[in-house]
Amino acid sequence: MLAHIRPAVVLLSLFTLLTGLAYPLAMTGIASTLFPWQAGGSLIQRDGKVVGSAVIGQNFVSAKYFHPRPSATSATDPKDPSKTIAAPYNADNSSGSNLGATSKALIDRVKAGIKVGRAEGWRGPLPADALTTSASGLDPDISPQYALLQAPVVAKARGLDAARLRNLVIAEIQKPWMGFFGEPRVNVLKLNLALDALK
């Protein structure tokens, strides 16, 4: 056993230097030269200010914007650090709802979501992503169906032509790679930026 200690300690130290420091630091260096934007988090700036990341979802509550999917992320309660409170799209603490298929909490949440949505003016069939939380709670995308479901609501709030908004949504749909790989989707932040740019 003792004879194994020297190689164990030496190799662990060498590999820590190699894979734990040299490798990630080298990667960081390579990344900042080759792909600085992606390496820094794919940040989107408007007027010189960071408004978010192209790949991280953010919350929109106003009727004037397209809404993302429900999010189950939470944050520490500022009043009581031992508790947590709901904080949708908290990009500092990714999390899913982890509610099972037979969870009463899940059913109740969806029920409430449908009620709110219908009240806001959702018409037609309800796409699944409109009422379910994503795995990370930071899903940047929604399905084209969900975007189209919201288009009349946003159009109304903004006083825009519903058809024009529909076309905007369709223009913002990202098609799957090679036409089949991945899902068609709409990035909410980009859609909303395009929406703001409409004026």
Partner: peptide, 13 residues
């Protein structure tokens, strides 16, 4: 709409 499948806990992309 069941055609979307069970999307709870899944990412759109």
């Amino acid at each position: 709409d069941p055609s979307g499948g069970n999307m709870e806990g899944k990412e759109t992309r």
